[in-house]
């Protein structure tokens, strides 16, 4: 069992989210930095569908109530276990009664705490992810509060500390032109790829609002409501783009100027308000190659864990 002593800005139970339910209006939810969640689970020998904690900024304090192993991934929050520093990207043993403190970060936005056996909250609609907007899943459908106690799955039989490389965050976000890309002015199309975009403070798990030159749409009328996905870049009438993320609603009506590739969505999750992003045009083949590369890195980790170094 885990006990939350200090919850931080927004700590939620997340897994890889809900799939196959968008036609019922049910959002995906799940970790915004999915590669970080996967890495944490792999380090502990957990299955990919295990839930972990997504922690937005610090400081956060958590007490353990059994012996086991933890992994910290995502942003480096200068964590300590009873005062001893823990490296991000590694798995560490903990003992019952010990206190984990995540102090916070100067770079990145979200840390992931995975524990052996996963956070064992009940599955709702096929996932343990918290749907904050609809109020179900995770721990009672809400962000964690001081005093919350979370059940844990079975302890793992692990022997040694182990670390894995993280991909380095860069402000380059690869995207494909969206269905309405050609309805935007030539100036808007050029600005999308050439200008820096500042992350607005009104960004959250539903979407990242970006500030920059106004993107004007020249042709095309009002759109009928259509399905949208995490990664879709909508442009509302104010001309300032919004990149949809895991908690975004399932349908929308704004023109779609671009679609961020799945392999780069984690970079948005780790971009802080006020930081600048740059869109890079790419094609579907590049998007697939980037996904394949992420999978290959996880495979390599599995092999190195199985066969030693």
């Amino acid at each position: 069992m885990l006990e939350i002593l200090r919850p931080g800005v927004q700590t939620t139970v997340q897994d890889l989210g809900r799939h196959g339910l968008r036609h019922l209006g049910i959002a995906q939810s799940g970790a915004l930095d999915a590669p970080a969640l996967r890495l944490g689970n792999r380090l502990l020998g957990n299955t990919d569908d295990c839930a972990a904690l997504e922690i937005v900024l610090g400081p956060v304090e958590i007490r353990f109530h059994r012996d086991g192993w933890l992994a910290l991934t995502g942003a480096d929050f200068s964590a300590t276990l009873d005062g001893q520093p823990l490296w991000c990207g590694w798995r560490w043993p903990y003992r019952s009664g010990q206190c984990l403190r995540l102090n916070g970060t100067r770079h990145g936005m979200r840390a992931y705490l995975a524990v052996d056996g996963g956070i064992d909250v009940p599955q709702v609609l096929g996932a343990r992810a918290t749907d904050l907007k609809a109020g179900f899943g995770g721990h009672h459908g809400r962000a964690l509060q001081a005093g919350d106690q979370l059940p844990q799955g079975s302890a793992a039989n692990l022997a040694r500390r182990l670390g894995a490389g993280h991909p380095a965050w860069t402000p380059a976000i690869r995207a494909l032109p969206g269905p309405e890309y050609h309805e935007f002015s030539a100036a808007a199309q050029a600005a999308l790829w050439s200008q820096p975009w500042t992350v607005s403070s009104h960004s959250n798990r539903m979407g990242y609002r970006l500030q920059g030159p106004e993107l004007a749409r020249e042709h095309g009328g009002e759109l009928l409501s259509h399905g949208v996905l995490p990664g879709v870049v909508q442009v509302p009438p104010n001309g300032q783009p919004i990149v949809l993320l895991a908690d975004a609603q399932t349908t929308g009506g704004y023109p779609r100027i671009a679609c961020v590739i799945e392999a780069d969505l984690w970079k948005l999750a780790q971009a802080r308000p006020g930081s600048e992003l740059q869109f890079l045009a790419c094609d579907a083949a590049t998007a697939r190659a980037a996904l394949r590369q992420q999978q290959a890195e996880l495979k390599r980790l599995d092999w190195s864990m199985q066969y030693g170094h």
């Binding site: 799939h19 196959g20 968008r22 259509h226 399905g227 949208v228 996905l229 799945e262 697939r288 394949r292």
Partner: peptide
């Protein structure tokens, strides 16, 4: 169309909108 595609069980999400349909698939 949504019903037919659901029986094929190859796609991740099949989302009707207003006179449109979005089919989500595994790109790999």
């Amino acid at each position: 169309l949504a019903d037919v595609l659901r029986t094929r069980q190859r796609y991740l999400d099949i989302v009707p909108g207003m006179n449109n349909l979005t089919v989500v698939f595994d790109p790999l």
